[in-house]
Design a protein around this nucleic acid. Structure first.
Lengths: 133, 133
DNA sequence: CAAATGTCGACTTGTTAAGTAGGAAAATAG
DNA sequence: CTATTTTCCTACTTAACAAGTCGACATTTG
């Protein structure tokens, strides 16, 4: 029901990387183009790197790039990193039991959607309709 | 992506009321049947009453009951009370714009599901298949 | 009156989100 | 070899929120 700012930032950073021409993109560029607080952006990019989603290079002309083609990275891949592993849905006692099925259904739909859409899809959509998306 | 314990409790309490025979159900019964901390249950029930979803009566044989038939109260009705009004989804800058559409789609699906299912539906399902829901 | 029950606002306590700080390490240019 | 640019890393801070508790009061019934 709620997505953290961190996750939003991570996704936006990932999309920015997907949209950039090949080669390292410095954190500074990502942060400014996506309105992400500079240090926080570092922080998040680092997390994405540790998760193996992006790679990096230090020094002048260094920066970050996607570890895999944008067509092969789904939104779910990114979200999993920043939101962590989701805990299991507990079964409620008594008559409220069926509520669990609702949560499960919702989660599954969510998951289906997010594993279907790739970073490349987002970039393509943005290119087609820059204003409304 | 996350639902508060408060909301889970509220839904379970509401379902418990929907399942009970007509007449007031004391908070104590609701709390114990649904494993809700006693005082917290009070707290939540009060919130539901203020929102007009349930009614109450003090004194011996007092308690709470649904303000409307269980067929006319949706899960969304309950959730709206405890989770509050959801803020608008902002449009992201630049190439990340289309992400907004994803969130919107997800929210709409969620909303559709939750406004479709009533408390009565949950109770009926529970009655049909007590174990697995 | 006593007992059972809801009503109310304030309070506590722990966790998490969001972001910041300070510097170490690496790469490159000169 | 030094200066500069960049990432890397740990730890910290601050504010908000969630979850739950408390104590006292109001109402209803017997």
């Amino acid at each position: 029901m709620r997505i953290s700012a961190r996750t939003h930032y991570a996704l936006r950073a990932a999309v920015a990387l997907a949209a950039a021409p090949p080669g390292p993109v410095p954190a500074d560029k990502i942060a400014s183009s996506q309105d992400i607080p500079r240090r926080f952006c570092d922080n998040i990019l680092l997390q994405l790197r540790r998760a193996g989603l992006v790679r990096s290079q230090r020094g002048p002309d260094g920066g970050y790039w996607l570890a895999r083609p944008a067509e092969e990275i789904t939104l779910a891949d990114v979200i999993r990193v920043t939101e962590g592993i989701e805990e299991e849905i507990e079964r409620f006692p008594g008559v409220a039991g069926p509520l669990t099925d609702i949560w499960t259904a919702m989660r599954e739909h969510e998951h289906a959607l997010l594993t279907e859409v790739t970073l490349a899809d987002v970039v393509t959509t943005a290119a087609k309709d820059p204003a409304a998306g």
